[in-house]
């Protein structure tokens, strides 16, 4: 097997004295959809923030495309082709939808492609084109997620991390967004790491599955090879 696109080795992350992630190790192979599941407070979001550079790890290494990106700030990591869609969409609520998307082409390397990328995002989410001049704060939750996804795609990523993108959305909206992610992966070959609380959905979408418990990755493998009981055990820690 060739070198994975993203390799996380023994990452530890703390908030002050509180250790949110003890020692997380996981691989994300190129071109795949990988899911990361775990209950509330397992440290999934902290791990994502740490990989994307929003949070500095206190130990461990992160390799992306074979290069060590441990501890690089978020603004540097995004230029290398790793983009995070943070939990809760985090749109720039006072800016218009189009300005939000254009922010995605802020890195100098992708500015030339801004127009093309914007068209691609509008093709993917036609509703955003209709609302291009509205403030993103006035959109529905699902539309805000679309803005957040579109904004991440504007950075021309090779790997996108989606942090609990389904949180607080209606089931039909979730279904649409997941379908879009699958389509993206198939058509453009973008590698995807999906963070989920819903085990069923994660197993259905992911080709490879990691389970996190109390700040550690306790189980990894293709969903078909992992038994339901095994996953339940890993998920709840019983």
């Amino acid at each position: 097997m060739s070198e994975p696109l993203l390799k996380v080795e023994g990452i530890q992350a703390k908030y002050g004295d509180f250790i949110a992630v003890h020692s997380a190790t996981l691989d994300v192979p190129e071109g795949k959809i990988v899911s990361l599941i775990g209950s509330n407070g397992a440290g999934k979001s902290t791990l994502m923030d740490t990989v994307a550079g929003l949070h500095r790890p206190s130990a461990g290494k992160v390799y992306f495309k074979g290069e060590d990106i441990t501890g690089l700030p978020a603004e540097k990591i995004v230029t290398r082709g790793l983009s995070l869609v943070p939990q809760g969409s985090r749109c720039f609520i006072r800016m218009s939808v189009e300005d939000n998307l254009i922010m995605g082409s802020f890195p100098k390397g992708v500015r030339a492609k801004a127009k093309d990328n914007l068209e691609k995002v509008y093709n993917l989410f036609p509703v955003l084109k209709e609302k291009r001049n509205d403030a993103s704060g006035s959109l529905s939750g699902g539309q805000r997620q679309m803005v957040a996804v579109g904004r991440a795609l504007m950075t021309d990523p090779e790997l996108v991390l989606f942090d609990e993108i389904s949180l607080g959305l209606a089931p039909t909206v979730i279904k649409d967004i997941y379908a879009t992610i699958k389509r993206l992966n198939k058509e453009t070959g973008i590698t995807v790491l999906l963070v989920e609380q819903d085990t069923q959905r994660a197993m259905k979408t992911g080709e490879l599955c990691h389970v996190m418990l109390k700040g550690e990755v306790v189980l990894s493998g293709p969903p078909r090879e992992l038994g339901d009981d095994e996953i339940k055990k890993a998920y709840f820690g019983i």
Binding site: A52, P73, C91, R94, M103, G104
Partner: peptide, 25 residues
């Protein structure tokens, strides 16, 4: 309103972390 730099300033004022995810220092 019209420049990348200007937009990045507004974005930072809305959400510093999300702005840094867009490559803004």
């Amino acid at each position: 309103n019209k420049t990348y730099m200007g937009r990045s300033i507004r974005a930072t004022s809305d959400d510093t972390q999300a702005a840094s995810l867009m490559g803004v220092s």
